[in-house]
Design a protein around this nucleic acid. Structure first.
Lengths: 208, 208
DNA sequence: GGCTGGGCCTTACGGTGTAAGTTTGTCAAG
DNA sequence: CTTGACAAACTTACACCGTAAGGCCCAGCC
């Protein structure tokens, strides 16, 4: 029986798909099963699992819309950051992987380079562009990290959890209780936009 | 032989210590071994491992210096955020745990409540305080996440990694190369402070 | 035809979380 | 002092994990 050889791109695509569907990083056996292959065969294409995880993370970064190279920086960075949040929320397992892998892949480097290029073309000095990237990325990563750790997915669940906390410990945490009582339509997208505006406004200080 | 019964506090303290020393979340067997006990004994105090992880995360939050209740908000929040970064860097395994556990513990709730209280006492309306906490926490979490994923620890290693990247792919990522070439004494603490100032300045917009 | 080598498979080992059942230590009631 | 009860700790077992070591098969070449 003839086999079409595994290509590393295929392995990564299916591994990402499996992670998206199952909500977590798949085991070597699961990845192999999905490809109609045994687990150990994967080791002919990747020296160890970490390299697969590196590839998966880079695969996710490749989905992020890069900022258009030489446009007005504020709107371009805003769209780019929103796309980043979209992608990271679509692949919730990815952000948890980030802190354990040191070596960025080509898509990751390309994105970094693109953002730096946009800033440099808009009057940011080298050091200012570095500060700007650090601040913007920190905000996006941190926001998504918090968004993913929320103990609810739908608005209905939010109500349940909120009143649960309120009943249990309402008087011990008065300001938290106040916040929960005042809750209005609290969409993550709106909250993200508010903080993003704050950061983008602040970047101005580092321009030439 | 008489045994002193395990107390949940003891288990958590030792589990945190082990994680700090070994650089990663310990297995049930490792925690038990450290306590001079068998793995399964832990299940008499914690229904499953997730509850231990919840407790470990809360244990870390308890180390964060809370902001003094009714002082000038800007300096107080700044010190608090710096303490948060300190603690999260001292326990590098903690931030990776955050996105997988939904239920915050008492220390975590207390911290949230304290920050909200400080903001409310300084003229922030409920919604504004909520925005402020979200933005500040996002920045701190995201910064630490990036700080921990850097592929080097000392300045010497940085040089190695930097010239490595430069040689390998310098011309493919010109702006990244430029950044690396221009690198100066680039301490995470300074970078953190710069972005923190940006965020703190921006919070003003949400005061009454 | 035979040789070579890459792609895949088989087997095995030590680690993981935890379900289920068993032993041990302590103390109050008879 | 005995007996029973109860909780804490231990033992065993299972299904899963990443991966080291080695074997088999078949396409492409000589």
């Amino acid at each position: 029986m003839t086999r079409s050889p595994l290509r590393t791109e295929t392995v990564l695509r299916e591994a990402v798909a499996y992670a998206d569907e199952s909500g977590g990083v798949p085991s070597m056996r699961k990845i192999a099963e999905r490809l109609g292959v045994e687990a150990m065969s994967l080791y002919h294409h990747f020296r160890n699992k970490d390299l697969i995880l590196d590839g998966m993370v880079d695969h996710v970064f490749a989905e992020i819309e890069p900022p258009p190279p030489a446009t007005e920086w504020r709107a371009a960075l805003g769209h780019h950051a929103a796309s980043m949040r979209d992608v990271l929320v679509r692949h919730p397992w990815a952000i948890g992987l980030m802190d354990s892998r040191g070596r960025p892949g080509p898509a990751t480097l390309r994105r970094h380079d693109g953002v730096l290029g946009l800033l440099r073309a808009n009057g940011f000095p080298v050091a200012g562009a570095a500060h700007a990237v650090s601040a913007l990325d920190s905000y996006v990563y941190g926001f998504v990290l918090q968004e993913l750790s929320l103990p609810f997915a739908t608005a209905g669940e939010l109500d349940e959890v909120a009143s649960g906390i309120l009943d249990a410990v309402g008087e011990e945490y008065p300001h938290l209780a106040e916040l929960i009582a005042h809750r209005n339509a609290h969409s993550p997208a709106v909250e993200f936009g508010a903080g993003l505006d704050l950061v983008l406004d602040g970047l101005e200080r580092w321009r030439a």
